[in-house]
Design a protein around this nucleic acid. Structure first.
Length: 440
DNA sequence: GGAACTCGCCAC
DNA sequence: AAACGTGGCGAGTTCC
């Protein structure tokens, strides 16, 4: 890790200055529109001075104290929430300016951090191996592990600042489904192993949840609901969430349906109509009925489909209660007060990262042994980022594949499932925003 | 005046 | 009975 920190990543100071100014202008426009609104003027009047737009407390006081709106959602400590989802559901159009300004600021904050942390145009982030309860890593100054990726605007704006050495290119290797695969090494669930290697658990659950008889992944509506199922049911269930949260996430967040009684023509598009038309036809006229349906799906998920996994969870939990600690396949021990979810998640998250760490160390050794000009410059839990010399690219890709999928399972005999990696690459002298899938 | 907490949001 | 795991960080706010 220290060698990756020392290698560092190049930042484009000129781009950051231009983009910073650009974002500031865009923010100023959105803020101006917001400040002109009746909503903002009422807020200002109620406070007797200019409200601080960065203060969730001031906004919550106005919305829920002065305006007497009913909080659609509460924070962890039980106060009215002001997050994006909540503000959107309040249906106050003026707040969209505020949300847009906040989004732009968030992007600008990344550039501020890059600029603050760089030295002579080089950024050397820290990778910590001693801070995380599960024996994962963390990263800071700046955090290399949370640079925007899904939101295309934020992704481009931030990653366009980050470059390899002159004449080099950035390469990222990513373990596919690492945590789920490693989970089978402790739970030994045959159905889960089958689904990972040959099946499609997300499609299977999607069919059941949304009652789709002729599921087709090439149908874009089906494809969308499959992604919704993956992110709104399967993953949350694996981490220990339960049917009520999943039902609401699927219906309201992904399906864009209301929490009240469903009517025709609501929600995302589905087979020429809308999701509500389809769900009502299946007998789900309210979120409550859909929730009850999810309860049954969950019972089947853990009681039948992945019953071996479920039995492991119970056994593992009893073992922790007896011993007062848990042990990982990689030999690390966690002690102290842990919840049931913690106990099953820790022993998966930790060893999954240790697979990455072993590969990282071995590849670093090879790079030094072969005196390559390429460098490892970072790591994001299940991926490694390289700064590659083009002449070494093909050799390095072969080496990476060998280390991550052959040598690692050879070194640790408890890895009883094939591992798989994906590659993403940028062109020579291109920024990290240009990365695209590499077909190998 | 700094430490500690809260909220919100980015990543895996 | 309980109810999604791990972080970092900006910014506001409260505590001491």
């Amino acid at each position: 890790m220290a060698r990756a920190e020392a290698a560092g990543i190049r930042v484009d100071m000129e781009y950051m200055e231009t983009k910073h100014a650009h974002l500031t202008r865009q923010m100023a426009y959105q803020e101006k529109k917001f400040k002109e609104s009746k909503f903002f003027k009422d807020w200002e009047k109620s406070q007797g001075k200019e409200p601080n737009m960065n203060s969730p407390v001031q906004l919550a006081t106005f919305l829920y104290g002065v305006m007497k709106r009913k909080p659609p959602k509460l924070t962890k400590s039980g106060k009215g929430s002001t997050d994006k989802e909540t503000l959107t559901s309040l249906n106050i159009p003026e707040l969209n300016y505020h949300l847009e300004a906040k989004k732009l600021k968030k992007i600008r904050d990344y550039l501020d951090a890059f600029k603050r942390e760089q030295v002579d145009g080089w950024m050397h982030t820290n990778f910590n191996l001693h801070l995380v309860s599960t024996f994962r890593s963390s990263s800071d100054k700046p955090n290399f592990q949370n640079i925007p990726k899904r939101d295309k605007v934020a992704m481009r704006a931030t990653r366009q600042a980050l470059y390899p050495r002159k004449g080099h290119q950035l390469l990222e290797v990513d373990y596919g489904q690492l945590e789920v695969r490693i989970s089978t090494c402790v739970n030994k669930d045959p159905q889960l192993i089958h689904d990972i290697l040959k099946g499609d658990m997300h499609a299977d659950m999607c069919k059941e949840i949304f009652q789709i008889k002729n599921f087709d992944n090439n149908n874009k509506d089906h494809h969308y609901l499959r992604a919704a199922t993956k992110n709104g049911f399967v993953f949350p269930e694996f981490y220990g969430d339960y049917f009520k949260n999943c039902a609401e996430a699927l219906a309201c967040q992904w399906g864009e349906l209301p929490k009240t009684r469903w009517k025709a023509g609501q929600g995302v598009e589905f087979e020429g109509k809308h999701l509500s038309d389809h769900l009502i036809a299946q007998g789900f006229t309210t979120l409550d009925k859909f929730t009850l349906h999810l309860k049954k799906i969950e019972e089947d998920f853990w009681g039948k489909r992945y019953k071996v996994y479920a039995r492991w969870k119970e056994k593992h939990w009893r073992q922790y209660q007896k011993d007062g600690y848990i042990e990982m396949l990689t030999g690390f021990r966690c002690q102290g007060v842990m919840s049931k979810n913690d106990v099953s998640n820790y022993v998966i998250q930790g060893p999954a990262f240790h697979c990455l760490l072993w590969s990282f160390i071995r590849l670093d050794e090879f790079i030094r042994e072969y005196k390559l000009n390429s460098r490892i410059i970072g790591q994001v839990h299940d991926s490694i980022v390289f700064d590659v010399h083009p002449d070494e690219r093909e050799e390095l890709i072969k080496l990476v594949r060998d280390v991550t999928t052959v040598l690692l399972p050879k070194a640790w005999d408890w890895i009883q499932i094939p591992l798989d990696v994906d590659f993403e690459i940028c062109g020579v002298d291109e920024s990290w925003a240009e990365k695209r899938k590499l077909e190998v």
